[in-house]
Write a protein that binds this DNA or RNA. Structure first.
Lengths: 345, 345
DNA sequence: CAGATCAGGTAAAACGGTTTCTCATACACA
DNA sequence: TGTGTATGAGAAACCGTTTTACCTGATCTG
C-alpha cells in the first residue's frame, strides 16, 4: 500500500501548458481546440497515468456510473448468473455495481436502498429468487430508474423474466419427438407462478390428460413421486421435472428401482444448475433459463434508462434453451428439432 | 421514478436559520455551538428528510465509505458466504460494497481494480475459490489497504483463511470418538494446499498408517474410491471425505453396495455445502469452514485499515466447526466431545 | 476597411458538502 | 472602566472535476 498522491487534471493541464478547462475538454472530446492541443493533452495525461476522480466527476455530471443490485437470493442459485450477465454488460461502460443482499428483511432493504441513493447510483436492478414475489421494499417513486429481473415489479415497470412456458414446451416436445407417449410432469409447489406456467405448457403439449404431480423443490420429492407413480397406475415412459433437484431425485429413485434411464424412461429437468444436473447419473437433459443473458439485458436496459433514453415498460420474456445431455436418451435429437433454442453439449 | 430534487444541506441551514457551516457541524457532532442550535438543526434535517450527498462528502473527507470486493469464484460456492459476512460487518457502518467478478482474467481484473480506485474505494477485499492460489492481479503497492480472504496474498499482507488442519482433526476425532478404528480419507487433488493440510491432520489423528486416497473434487470420484476400497484390502468403518461432493458420492456408492450408513460405515464430509450435504441420504455430518464469520472478520479488518488503525499483518486462521447430522452415526456425539467448535443441528 | 463571424482558449462558477479561520459578543478579572 | 478570554456562529477556502460564459485575435464579408 503505497501512499502516492494521485495525479489531478490540474497537473495534466499545467504540464501540457493549457488551462484546466481545456484539459478537461480535450480529455472528454468536447469543446473546440486544435487537434494538436487535444492530442498533446491526451498524451500528457497518458504519460502521467492520469485517472479522473470519479467522485468529483459524478458531482458535476450528476451521474455516478454506478448502479445498485438488490437481491434476496442469498443462496445465489439465480442471482449469480444474473449478476455475471449484468457485470458483463456494464464493465466496459465503466459502470460499477453495488451489491446489496437483503434477506427478506424490509428494514435492511430500506437501509441499503437509502445508502445506494446517497451514493447517487444511476439506477437499481432488483432481482430475486422467485418470479412471482416482490422484494420487501417499495422501489416505485425512487429518483432513479429501476429494472426488475427475475422478480415481480409494479405493472408499469420494466421487468425481465424467462419464458417458463416456452421452456416447458421445448422440454415436452423433445420428449414427444423421442417417441415417448406416457408423459408425466413432476414439479414444485402449486402456488409458484412458474410451476403453473410450466404445467400449463406441459399439458398443452402433452395432452390435457397428462398427469402433473405437485410437491416440493427437493430431491426427496422426486423420490416420493417415483414411488407413487410406480405403485399406482400405468408407469410413464418420460418424466419432465420442475427443477433439477427433483429430476435428480427421480433419476436416483429410478436407478434404485432398477428402471433404466434413459432406456426405459426419459427424464428432463429444469434450471440447468450444473452442480446438480452434471453430477446426476446419467447427466440431466434440462432447460436452461439463460439467466446470464437475462442479466446482460437488465444491464443494457438500466443503462439506457440511466442515460434518459425511453424504454418501453412492461414484462419482457426471454427464451429458455434446452440443454441436451444423456437423461433424455437421444443423440440425434438436435437433428430432430432444428430450433435455435436448442443446444447440444 | 419521481424526479424530486434532493434536499441539500443548504436547505437545512436556511430553514433552521443558520449557516451551512453550522449546519454541517451540527449534523456531524463537531464544532462548538449551543445544544439548542444543534438539536434544532438536527430536527430540521430529520423533518426534511435530509440525506447528505455521499459523493460530495467523499470528495472532502477523502473517504468514500465504499470498499471493493474482488473475486474469481464465479460459482459462488465460497464467495457467497464470505460476501454475506462482509456485508453484515459493513452495512451498519454505512459502507457499501462494489462487487467485481473476474474470472482468472488478468485484463478484466486490472480494469476492475482501476475502476475501483477511480471510485476512491477505501479498501479492497480479495477473495477466491482456492486458498493457495493468487488472483491474476497484483494488489501490492495499491494506494488503498487490501485484505485477502480465502485466497493467497503476499507474505506481508493481512490474510484470512480457515483452519483446515483443525477442521480435519475435529472430523477425525469425531469418528474415533464414535469407536471407529479403520479410518480412510478420500479427498481431492494432491496439489491443493487444503488437501495436504487436511490429509496431514487426518494422519496425525488417525495414525500415520491410515490410508489417504487423492482424486477429484467430484461425486464420481467418491464412487470410484468406494469401489476401489471395497475391492482391495480390508474395508474401512469410517470415511472422512475432502468435500461434500465426494462424501455424497461415497454415501451413494455405499448404499448401492448395500453397506449401511452410518450403521456399518460412518461418513463425514467437508464444506457444509447445504445443497449437497442436506440432500444426501442420510444427511451429511460435515465440517463447516465458517466462511461467513471469515467474511465478517475481513470486513472488520478492512474497516480498521481504512480508518488508519494499525493491523498486524500475517495469516489469520479461523476455526472450522463440525456440523453433526446423521451420516456419522451418533446422536450423543455432542456430549462426547465438549468442544466449542462443535455444533449440533 | 469596418463590422461580423469564428476558432481556440481561459477564468470562474458550479456540484454539495467539510473544515479552517475569523469575528462578534459576553463575561470575568484587575 | 479597560483588558483578556471563552463561546457560538459565520465567511470563505477547499476537494477535483465539468461547464458556462467570456475574451482575443484572425479570417471573412460587403
Amino acid at each position: 500500500m503505497a501512499k502516492v498522491d494521485r495525479i489531478r487534471i490540474y497537473d495534466v493541464a499545467r504540464i501540457a501548458g493549457v488551462s484546466v478547462a481545456t484539459a478537461s475538454k480535450a480529455l472528454n472530446d468536447t469543446g473546440r481546440m486544435t487537434e494538436a492541443t487535444r492530442t498533446r493533452v491526451k498524451q500528457t495525461a497518458a504519460a502521467l497515468g492520469f485517472r479522473p476522480n470519479a467522485m468529483a466527476r459524478a458531482l458535476t455530471r450528476q451521474r455516478s456510473f454506478t448502479i445498485g443490485l438488490l437481491t434476496n437470493d442469498t443462496y445465489g442459485r439465480f442471482t449469480l448468473p444474473v449478476m455475471a450477465g449484468i457485470n458483463e454488460a456494464l464493465v466496459d461502460q465503466g459502470v460499477s455495481v453495488f451489491l446489496c443482499g437483503i434477506e427478506d428483511d424490509a428494514t435492511l432493504a430500506k437501509v441499503h436502498v437509502d445508502a445506494m441513493l446517497d451514493k447517487q447510483v444511476d439506477g437499481i436492478i432488483a432481482t430475486g429468487k422467485r418470479i412471482d414475489r416482490r422484494l420487501p421494499v417499495d422501489l416505485a417513486d425512487l429518483p432513479v430508474p429501476v429494472v426488475y429481473a427475475f422478480t415481480e415489479g409494479p405493472a408499469d415497470a420494466v421487468t425481465l423474466v424467462s419464458d417458463d412456458a416456452q421452456g416447458a414446451r421445448a422440454a415436452t416436445e423433445c420428449l414427444l419427438a423421442l417417441g415417448r407417449r406416457r408423459l408425466v410432469h413432476v414439479t414444485g409447489p402449486e402456488d409458484f407462478a412458474s410451476v403453473a406456467a410450466r404445467a400449463a405448457a406441459f399439458r398443452q403439449a402433452a395432452g390435457s390428460a397428462a398427469p402433473v404431480l405437485f410437491g416440493a423443490w427437493s430431491e426427496a420429492w422426486g423420490h416420493e413421486a417415483v414411488s407413487r407413480l410406480w405403485s399406482e397406475g400405468p408407469v410413464p415412459d418420460a418424466i419432465f421435472c420442475g427443477n433439477d433437484q427433483i429430476a435428480r431425485g427421480v433419476v436416483d429413485a429410478l436407478r434404485e428401482r432398477g428402471v433404466a434411464v434413459p432406456a426405459d424412461v426419459s427424464v428432463v429437468g429444469f434450471d440447468n444448475w450444473e452442480i446438480v444436473s452434471a453430477a446426476t447419473r446419467p447427466p440431466l437433459t434440462t432447460v436452461d433459463m439463460n439467466l446470464k443473458e437475462l442479466g446482460r439485458e437488465a444491464g443494457r436496459l438500466i443503462l439506457e434508462l440511466a442515460e434518459g433514453k425511453p424504454v418501453e415498460p412492461g414484462i419482457r420474456t426471454l427464451p429458455c434453451k434446452l440443454v441436451v445431455r444423456q437423461s433424455c436418451g437421444s443423440k440425434t435429437l438436435a437433428a430432430i428439432q432444428g430450433e435455435g433454442t436448442l443446444q447440444e453439449v
